[in-house]
Design a binder for these strands. Structure first.
Length: 883
RNA sequence: GGGGCAUUAGCUCAGCGGGAGAGCGCUUGAUUCACAUUCAAGAGGUCGCUGGUUCGAAACCAGCAUGCCCCACCA
């Protein structure tokens, strides 16, 4: 890196080169070293058909920062990568592809051929998203890449299924479950997304059998299910209907006789207080049907079309049937009224079709016994959520958990290890494939269903480490250190991993759950395909580099909260990378003749100050990383590098660098520049891995790579509060001078004479020793240092700092009103501060109860402000005397 | 119905018990000397409202208002 290199940082020339190098040299690979402290993360496996989106970019940036930081701290660090077979999502994708490319369905191919095609798809596209993660800089151990349907994970799945079955925690049953009529499969409760939609409440009157002209009116949002009614329920205490309980009604259109039953489920205040009961098509009605022994009449089929039981409506789509049936009811005089009614409608998470509750035979996991230990470990802190508030989300869900439907009527996934004997009716659940019935020797057939994708994801923290074998990986890396994921999959994934980890490892799968929010568009909308408002992280990387994207994603937001994507923020991060690049160029360009071993002059105030600031930054950044405050850590580094190192230290070091005569002083400046920049690059490396490696390699350094370099430790000996406060005073004075020069519109090239009048010998010495700072950064020449009680200059602008009056004499007469106004403004703000501080100090309660150091601090402030006020007042009085 | 989050500068957000902050935008000035993807200076805020706790509240507590989100078997 030298002058000939562009002043604009080009990530393209850097990122690919270093990633290849890191991977080739195996820096990300973790060997088991039983004696070393371990730090491990399993990646939330992205869908194998997926493409990197902003959510992934954020999630994996957070993980990579933690992993790189701990790796530098010397932990034996494992980041386990892999992908998820994503049953329904993948199957839909491949089916769509078959439709588009060959105009065939999966049924045309048959199960075996179809699954082959999905595997082909997986081979072709499965590595795409993982390669995209590499572009982001993710330092995963790629030698350990896993897939939820690979041999090992599948073995774990089967072991867990059979074992839960043997414990009686997996059972099969005919129940009403959520059914997607498009995907043609059952869904678990959490795969149904409820949405409030405007609908109607139809009031329909049912004639009472044998009592002419007497009707019972029911209210329903789903009139088409009338065809499946087998009862009408009222509340047992409802005076309006008590006399009808036990009587029969004539179901309109259908003509079936159905009973009036009493059930306390009914809310007399809602609708008419009478509920039609359709046990085959509504979960509540199903329960009532059980309680009152009502028959099931199934009128809606698995494809959402009406069945023969629906009579003349057979074959109609459920919504077409609704329309026709309502018209028929109206015509026949059964429709009493129609009200607008907002209600919640369930949709399939994958295809957004309205879910139909239907009765079918499915496999379920009994959740209560699994939930108990999973609640315990969170309540007693063995698993901690960050931010903490998500524990509530988690526990609320687990406390009200219902059994989990795990069977799916699709083909892509882990086929359920259950076999049926048609001869004797035996069901065999087995760890090994079954060919003949062990009971009767008859032929068996395997259950055709596959398991919910989340069943295998739930095992991910241990299935990827070789379970059910007892492996060295499990012993070293399980439990993992932290899980990093979005709040949207706490139920789907986090809770299941904890339950299954406790059940099969008797140990938590991770100690911390670090939750982040969603990346939204600039208007705060969710990024989605249908809105077309998604921003491709790869496009950002292409244009601005991965470091920029990473830094943009982790700053300016707070853990667990959503964030918005702004190109302006990308540019701001890009500017930061460029700033670092140019500061580093500057340092390199001034290293000629540098010899670390050569004799050096003692540190200057600026050296002591920046070294002290570095130690404090090391301390703060490390603390923040420990508390998962990644954004704050990033912000701190931004401020240190830009506002302190670049804006002040580099400028202050220039005088020595450019003076080749004073070799020892020059060497000191060079050495501080190098060491501070080198340490800053290490601190920043987890956040911006590429640019920091590139720069680090160009600086004098030990070791092969920054990736494995040790994380900086704060050197207490270099913490220097005195130097910091002296330097702060220098900076205050310089800023005051710049301010006055700006007011006067003095061109930068023109120097100003300045007079400082100070309170003490120490201050006089401080400014005398460091007058060069004022000359270079304050554009001062002819600096005079006097004492506060010296005569004041006449034609001069004035400012005050702590213990210092600053005068900028100007050639001609000063603009008295303008200068008075400027000082008055300063005086006003001082008065405000003084009023506040004095208010405190005159408060007996404050003096008695506030900690001593706080009181002392306030007293010191009061003294400083009063002194400043006096200086300004005197100056204003003097200006007034001129008129 | 239950729960959560948000409300701070024009915009997007940090801060979360002791002197109101950043980025972007805005105003003014600056280009041989690391960087105009830059530098310097500046304007801009009774920290949603009402109570309470405290010597002290933007921050803690309660209530309210507005917006967003999650959960729940609202026929």
């Amino acid at each position: 890196m030298d002058k000939t290199i562009s002043t604009v940082y080009d990530p393209k020339q850097v990122e690919e080169k270093w990633y290849k190098e890191w991977e080739a040299r195996g820096y990300f690979h973790a060997e088991v070293k039983p004696d070393d402290p371990a730090f491990s993360i399993v990646i939330p496996p992205p869908n194998v058909t997926g493409q990197l989106h902003m959510g992934h970019a954020l999630d994996n940036t957070l993980q990579d920062i933690l992993i790189r930081w701990r790796r530098m701290q010397g932990y034996n660090t494992l980041w386990m990568p892999g992908s998820d077979h994503a049953g329904i999502a993948t199957q839909i994708k491949v089916e769509e592809n078959l439709k588009n490319e060959e105009n065939i369905t999966r049924y045309d191919l048959g199960r075996e051929k179809f699954i082959e095609r999905v595997w082909e798809w997986k081979e072709q596209y499965g590595s795409r998203i993982l390669n995209q993660l590499k572009r982001l800089g993710a330092s995963c151990d790629w030698q350990r890449e896993r897939f939820t349907m690979d041999e090992g994970c599948s073995k774990a799945v089967r072991e867990v299924f059979v074992s839960l079955y043997e414990q009686g925690l997996i059972y099969q049953g005919s129940r009403i479950t959520n059914w997607c009529v498009r995907c043609h499969t059952a869904l678990s409760d959490i795969e149904v997304e409820h949405e409030d939609q405007p609908g109607k409440l139809w009031h329909v009157r049912y004639p009472v059998v044998g009592e002419d002209g007497i009707y019972l009116t029911v209210a329903t949002t789903r009139p088409e299910t009338i065809l499946g009614d087998t009862g009408v329920a009222v509340h047992p205490e409802d005076e309006r209907y008590k006399h009808l309980i036990g009587k029969e009604l004539l179901l309109p259109i259908v003509g079936r006789k159905i009973p009036v039953i009493a059930d306390s489920y009914v809310d007399p205040a809602f609708g008419t207080g009478a509920v039609k009961v359709t046990p085959a098509h509504d979960p509540n009605d199903f329960e009532m049907g059980v309680r009152h022994d009502l028959p099931h009449v199934v009128v809606i089929g698995m494809d959402g079309n009406m069945l023969p039981e629906a009579g003349k409506y057979e074959g109609m789509d459920r919504y077409a049937c609704r329309k026709v049936l309502v018209a028929d009811l109206e015509e026949a005089g059964y429709l009493v009224k129609v009200e607008e009614h907002q209600h919640s409608v369930g949709h399939c998470q994958r295809c957004h079709t309205v879910v139909e509750p239907l009765v079918s035979k499915q496999w379920f996991v009994k959740m209560a016994p699994l939930a108990k230990p999973a609640l315990d470990v969170v309540n007693d802190g063995r698993v901690q959520f960050v931010p903490e508030r998500f524990t509530k989300t988690y526990t609320n869900w687990l406390e009200n958990i219902r059994d989990w439907c795990i069977s799916r009527q699709i083909w892509w996934g882990h086929q359920i290890p259950a076999w049926y004997c048609d001869d004797c009716g035996e069901t065999i659940v087995s760890r090994t494939d079954v060919t003949v019935c062990p009971k009767c020797g008859g032929a068996v057939r395997q259950d055709e269903d596959v398991l919910d994708t989340w069943f295998s994801s739930g095992l991910w923290p241990f299935s990827t480490m070789g379970w059910p074998e007892d492996t060295a990986e499990l012993r070293q890396f399980y439990p993992t250190s932290v899980l990093v994921t979005g709040y949207d999959i706490i139920f789907f994934w986090v809770a299941r991993m904890i339950m299954l980890g406790m059940a099969f490892r008797q140990e938590v799968p991770f100690r911390h759950v670090f939750i982040h929010g969603l990346v939204r568009d600039s208007q705060g909308r969710k990024m989605s395909k249908s809105l077309g408002n998604g921003i491709d992280p790869l496009e950002v990387i292409e244009q601005y580099g991965a470091d920029t994207l990473r830094f943009m994603l982790i700053t300016g937001n707070t853990p667990g909260n959503d964030m918005r994507f702004y190109w302006e923020r990308v540019e701001s991060s890009r500017n930061f990378a460029n700033k670092i690049w140019n500061a580093s160029r500057f340092v390199m360009m001034n290293l000629d003749g540098y010899d670390a071993a050569a004799p050096k002059a003692p540190y200057t105030l600026a050296d002591e100050w920046i070294l002290s600031r570095l130690q404090q930054t090391v301390r703060d950044v490390t603390n923040m990383l420990e508390n998962y405050e990644l954004g704050e850590a990033g912000r701190l580094l931004y401020e240190f590098i830009w506002n302190e190192f670049c804006d002040w230290y580099i400028e202050l070091a220039k005088a020595r660098l450019y003076n080749h005569e004073a070799a020892e002083a020059r060497a000191t400046a060079q050495s501080v520049l190098c060491s501070v920049l080198e340490a800053a690059m290490r601190l920043l490396h987890p956040f911006m891995p590429f640019i920091t490696e590139e720069i680090w390699q160009c600086l004098p350094h030990d070791g092969a790579t920054i990736v494995l370099k040790t994380w900086p430790k704060a050197d207490e000996a270099l913490l220097n509060p005195a130097a910091e406060s002296q330097m702060n005073l220098m900076m205050d004075v310089i800023k005051a001078i710049r301010n006055m020069r700006a007011e006067l519109n003095v061109p930068p090239g023109k120097k100003s004479p300045a007079l400082l009048q100070v309170a003490t010998d120490e201050l006089a010495a401080l400014f005398d020793n460091n007058s060069g700072y004022l000359r270079t950064l304050g554009a001062v020449d002819n600096l005079t240092i006097g004492r506060l009680d010296d005569a004041k200059p006449e034609h001069a602008m004035t400012a005050v700092a702590s213990g210092v009056e600053i005068y900028l004499p100007i050639g001609g007469l000063i603009d008295v009103p303008k200068e008075t106004q400027r000082l008055q403004k300063e005086l006003d703000s001082l008065d405000k501060e003084i009023a506040r501080v004095e208010g405190k100090l005159s408060n007996a309660g404050f003096l008695a109860k506030a900690p001593n150091d706080v009181v002392e601090k306030e007293q010191a402030k009061a003294a400083e402000y009063r002194e400043k006020r006096q200086s300004i007042q005197e100056r204003i009085a003097y200006l007034a005397s001129l008129v």
